[in-house]
Design a protein around this nucleic acid. Structure first.
Length: 425
RNA sequence: GGAAGAUUCGCAUAAUUGGUAUUGCAGCAGUCUUGAAAACUGCCGGGCGCAAGCCUAUGGGGGUUCGAGUCCCUCAUCUUCCGCCA
């Protein structure tokens, strides 16, 4: 959510940014609703002041044993008026916020303006982009080696769910351990969040109302299965005021992720390219505003080290305005090269949301600073960042295709202490 | 699932028959000091305002009332007990 004050003062900038992000929102409507809101607010506050003064007077009169019925009658009228104005105020606020939630975050100045993924800017690539020597894709290899069982996954649950079996399951667990251990070394605090969350949490990170169709929903308890650990991790500090000394907070968390992928049937559905349940380790940071740019860079290098450790070829993209998500100000994607698929697969997305999520989730901190002449320091919104580090399915696809030599799947060195074996055959 | 009790600032606490949220600790800024501690001064729930000041706030939502921490309804969470299940 953007600051209403900022919108009021820079309507044209907001309009242009909204268009560049392929979104639409009625900025003028918001401004006029906000103006109306402030008019009502000042009127109703005057009346409340009057009510408070008179109520106090009534108390004093009664305490002195006098008759206050005249004032009390007058007050009834004012109270009614306050009640109806409060109702109107709430209606106007609701309409304003409804529209306000449609405005995307302001793009960072480094973000190139563009329509879609073809306008993204490659800022780095590493490793060889080559074709596979064996010609088998990850599905064929996995079948041959018995790593996964897609058919029985479909029987037990449905399409898009699979069993990981034997050494395949072990490999999956090794990846997760490798990710988590690396993050702990880099100063992230390990967290295992709840895998289901309530409606408020989904709302504050922005999954609701827009993405309702894409989530699994347990109706009896009105709880949602998380599509990413970003949701519980960011909500961890919802409605809190943090201390300056607490920041930056760096969290890493493992969770399974559940996505209905409504409307995406027929697109990348083969094997592990697009599934309804997968494992991911997520990074989340809460920072002071002045630190967030630097923290995004360090997050990128934390993710990069993981991929390099696995020996996969990758590239880093700076997303253009049209491809950057609604809530993000600036996003970098990591893509790894899959030899048999002959394509780049997105394995991580690191974003700086600045104060967009924190305003919505009401996460603030108390800045350290000079207190001059008894003026208190107002809390400010923190900046939030998150990044996948990493999601396992597409890492597995690239890894299986690259490390298979025709008979054996060789395990990257960094994983061997977790798997306990050096190859699968 | 049922019963009883509880929820007030980061922590701890006070608030007559309903009369407008107290105090302590911690914290922050400053004075003093070579530096620190102590002591002292100011701030210390949130919002608006250049300011004076105003509004708001006692777990969430609603109600009664001129006025609600206090009375009523409802939901959430915690504690204890009972029941059920593993």
């Amino acid at each position: 959510m953007l600051d209403i004050k900022f919108i009021r003062e820079n309507p044209d900038v907001v309009k242009e940014n909204t268009a560049n992000k392929n979104a639409s929102a009625d900025i003028d409507k918001i401004i006029s609703l906000d103006q109306r809101r402030r008019e009502i607010l000042s009127l109703v506050e005057q009346q409340k002041f009057e009510r408070n003064v008179n109520s106090k007077q009534i108390g004093d009169i009664k305490k002195a044993g006098g008759d206050a019925s005249q004032i009390m009658n007058d007050m009834k009228v004012i109270s009614e008026s306050i009640k109806s104005m409060d109702t109107e105020l709430r209606e106007v606020e609701q309409k304003r916020d409804e529209e306000l939630l449609k405005i995307p975050n302001m793009s960072d100045e480094v973000v190139p303006v563009g329509k879609n993924e073809t306008d993204n800017k490659e800022i780095k690539s590493w490793g060889l982009v080559r074709d596979s020597s064996h010609g088998l894709d990850h599905i064929a290899i996995a079948k041959k080696l018995g790593l996964f069982d897609f058919e029985r996954g479909a029987k037990v649950t449905g399409a898009g769910f699979s069993f990981m079996t034997g050494k395949g399951a072990r490999l999956e667990r090794a990846l997760i351990n490798y990710f988590l251990d690396s993050h702990s070394e880099n100063g992230y605090s390990e967290t295992i969040p709840p895998f289901v969350v309530n409606e408020d949490s989904m709302r504050s990170t922005g999954q609701l109302p827009k993405m309702a169709e894409d989530m699994y929903h347990a109706q009896i308890d009105n709880l949602y299965l998380i599509p990413t650990a970003e949701v519980p991790l960011t909500n961890l500090h919802r409605d809190e005021i943090l201390q300056d000394s607490d920041l930056s907070i760096k969290l890493c968390g493992y969770s399974p992720c559940f996505r209905r992928e409504a409307g995406s049937h027929g697109k990348d559905v083969r094997g592990f390219l697009r599934v309804h349940q997968f494992n991911k380790v997520e990074l989340v940071k809460f920072t002071r505003p002045q630190d967030s740019a630097k923290e995004l860079q360090s997050m990128l290098s934390d993710v990069e080290k993981l991929i390099q450790g696995l020996g996969l070829s990758y590239r880093i993209l700076l997303l253009c305005s049209g491809d950057t998500s609604f809530a993000s100000s600036v996003t970098y994607d990591f893509e790894v090269w899959a030899e048999s698929e002959k394509s780049w697969l997105e394995v991580s997305s690191c974003s700086n949301f600045k104060d967009f999520q924190s305003r919505r989730a009401n996460i603030r901190y108390r800045p350290k600073g000079k207190v001059s002449e008894g003026k208190k320091i107002s809390p400010e919104f923190v900046h939030t960042l998150n990044g996948s580090a990493l999601a396992t399915p597409r890492i597995l696809v690239a890894l299986i295709e690259q490390y298979f030599d025709g008979t054996s799947l060789w395990i990257p060195e960094v994983l061997r202490k977790y798997t306990g074996f050096d190859r699968i055959d």
